[in-house]
Measured scan of single mutants.
Amino acid sequence: QVALSRTQVCGILREELFQGDAFHQSDTHIFIIMGASGDLAKKKIYPTIWWLFRDGLLPENTFIVGYARSRLTVADIRKQSEPFFKATPEEKLKLEDFFARNSYVAGQYDDAASYQRLNSHMNALHLGSQANRLFYLALPPTVYEAVTKNIHESCMSQIGWNRIIVEKPFGRDLQSSDRLSNHISSLFREDQIYRIDHYLGKEMVQNLMVLRFANRIFGPIWNRDNIACVILTFKEPFGTEGRGGYFDEFGIIRDVMQNHLLQMLCLVAMEKPASTNSDDVRDEKVKVLKCISEVQANNVVLGQYVGNPDGEGEATKGYLDDPTVPRGSTTATFAAVVLYVENERWDGVPFILRCGKALNERKAEVRLQFHDVAGDIFHQQCKRNELVIRVQPNEAVYTKMMTKKPGMFFNPEESELDLTYGNRYKNVKLPDAYERLILDVFCGSQMHFVRSDELREAWRIFTPLLHQIELEKPKPIPYIYGSRGPTEADELMKRVGFQYEGTYKWVNPHKL
Rank of each mutant, 00 (worst) to 15 (best):
D255M: 13
V256T: 15
V256D: 06
M257C: 08
M257P: 03
Q258F: 12
L261E: 01
L261Y: 02
L261K: 01
L262E: 00
Q263G: 10
M264R: 02
M264I: 11
L265T: 08
V268Y: 01
A269V: 04
M270A: 04
M270T: 04
M270W: 00
K272G: 07
P273Q: 00
N277L: 14
S278P: 09
D279Q: 13
D279M: 08
D279I: 10
D279E: 14
D280M: 13
D280P: 06
D280C: 08
V281S: 03
V281R: 02
D283A: 04
E284M: 07
E284Y: 04
E284N: 03
K285L: 05
V286P: 01
K287R: 14
V288N: 00
C291I: 04
C291N: 08
I292S: 02
V295Y: 04
A297I: 13
A297F: 13
V300C: 11
V301L: 09
V306R: 09
G307N: 08
N308C: 09
N308V: 03
E312S: 08
T316D: 07
T316I: 12
K317L: 06
K317Y: 09
K317M: 09
G318Q: 02
Y319K: 00
L320H: 13
D322C: 07
D322S: 09
T324P: 07
T324H: 12
T324D: 14
V325E: 03
G328H: 11
S329L: 01
S329K: 02
T330N: 07
F334Q: 03
V337H: 02
V337D: 04
V338I: 09
V341C: 06
E342C: 07
E342M: 05
E344L: 08
W346L: 01
W346C: 00
D347M: 06
G348N: 06
G348V: 01
G348P: 00
V349W: 01
V349T: 03
P350C: 01
F351A: 01
F351I: 07
I352H: 02
I352Q: 01
L353P: 01
R354M: 10
R354G: 02
G356N: 00
G356W: 01
K357Q: 12
L359F: 00
N360W: 00
R362E: 14
K363R: 05
K363E: 15
E365Q: 05
V366E: 03
R367K: 14
R367F: 04
L368I: 14
L368S: 00
Q369D: 00
V373C: 05
V373W: 15
G375Y: 10
G375M: 15
D376T: 14
I377L: 15
Q381W: 11
C382R: 13
K383C: 14
K383W: 13
R384E: 02
N385T: 13
N385C: 08
L387Y: 04
L387I: 07
V388G: 05
I389G: 02
I389V: 08
R390I: 06
R390K: 15
V391Q: 12
V391C: 15
Q392R: 15
P393A: 06
E395Q: 15
V397L: 09
Y398A: 14
Y398P: 04
Y398G: 06
T399Q: 09
K400T: 15
K400R: 15
T403C: 13
T403Q: 14
T403R: 15
K404Y: 15
K405C: 14
K405M: 14
P406W: 13
G407W: 06
F410S: 06
F410K: 06
F410T: 08
N411C: 09
P412A: 09
E413Y: 14
E414N: 15
S415A: 06
S415H: 12
E416F: 12
L417R: 14
L417F: 15
L417H: 14
L419F: 14
G422A: 05
N423C: 12
N423F: 09
R424I: 08
K426Y: 12
K426T: 14
V428I: 05
V428K: 07
V428A: 10
V428C: 11
K429D: 15
P431C: 06
P431I: 12
Y434R: 15
Y434E: 15
Y434P: 11
E435I: 07
E435R: 07
R436A: 15
D440P: 02
F449R: 01
V450R: 02
V450M: 15
R451S: 15
S452V: 12
D453T: 02
E454V: 06
R460Q: 09
R460H: 11
T463F: 08
L465H: 04
L466Y: 15
H467K: 15
Q468R: 12
Q468T: 12
I469P: 08
E470Q: 11
E470L: 06
E470R: 13
L471R: 09
K473G: 05
K475Q: 08
P476G: 02
I477T: 08
I477W: 12
P478L: 05
P478W: 06
Y479N: 01
Y479S: 02
Y481P: 04
G482V: 01
R484F: 15
R484L: 09
G485Y: 00
G485N: 03
P486D: 01
P486C: 05
E488Y: 06
L492P: 00
M493H: 07
M493Y: 14
M493F: 07
R495P: 04
R495I: 07
V496G: 09
Q499F: 11
Q499D: 15
G502E: 15
T503C: 12
Y504R: 14
Y504T: 13
K505Q: 11
W506D: 14
V507R: 12
P509G: 13
H510L: 11
K511Y: 12
